[in-house]
Design a protein around this nucleic acid. Structure first.
Lengths: 127, 127
DNA sequence: GTAAAAAGTAGTAACGATTACTATTTTGAG
DNA sequence: CTCAAAATAGTAATCGTTACTACTTTTTAC
């Protein structure tokens, strides 16, 4: 990975250090704890470069924000449309809906593009 | 379906008459062919209402636009990140990746949220 | 080492899809 | 018909993202 600027290093570090699939704004704020003068544009530009190079993954869940994932091995995500949590999910090998239902303990709604529904804690809150 | 305004009727008609998963702008322009004075805000508001009522589906593919689908039976979509085409796809019953590969004749990339990759015509163009 | 070229950055302005707002029109119950 | 509630057209505002500019850092060539 070509990584010669301190800013890019920090951005990658921040992404690698979480499994929360953060927004650009969150990454920016975390970076500023280490580099108080880093600019938002730099975060955007580097994330775009890193995505292009295959070093990070960009996720669109439909909440109006792009999300980023420092884990680039092939896997899926589940988005809870109630609390906004994004969960990692291994590739299913068999019936997808049953798989997700058992694996994540979620009410999966496969309509549309995105795996989304209610995560287990939101089910408990609403039930 | 509660549908008493002419505008909402036309919006639904437009969505039902295509399988292209259009953007709001496209719906707006189609509606203006029938109702030249319809406003963009009306299209947005009605699409939001229709979505809330379960009469249309909203799709986020990550291209910066919301897309809408008048077909609300449970099904999936495949998004070609080269040409932007959105294809319908029945619920797979078995191994998902193999299924999509065979069914759509696409190079599927399941990383991230969205089924996306190259559609068959884009594979031919690039190969 | 040094100088010029190339790439990256901070800060700010601009963009554009979406949402909010307002005055006006349409709808529907009594 | 009448009047309140709901919808609309048109426009302004919002805000995540992108573009731009002057400046700094890194790389390359000598």
């Amino acid at each position: 990975m070509r990584n010669y600027s301190k800013q890019r290093e920090v951005i990658v570090e921040v992404l690698r250090s979480t499994d929360t699939h953060p927004t650009v704004q969150w990454v920016y704020e975390k970076c500023r704890e280490k580099l108080p003068k880093i600019s938002l544009g730099t975060v955007y530009r580097n994330l775009t470069e890193l995505k292009k190079d295959g070093d990070v993954l960009e996720l669109s869940v439909g909440d109006g924000f792009q999300h980023y994932d420092g884990d680039v091995k092939e896997h899926m995500h589940f988005y809870c449309h109630n609390c906004g949590t994004i969960l990692d999910c291994e590739m299913p090998k068999n019936n997808l809906k049953d798989f997700l239902q058992n694996k994540l303990n979620c009410e999966v709604n496969l309509s549309g593009y995105v795996f989304s529904g209610l995560c287990s804690s939101c089910i408990n809150l609403n039930g």
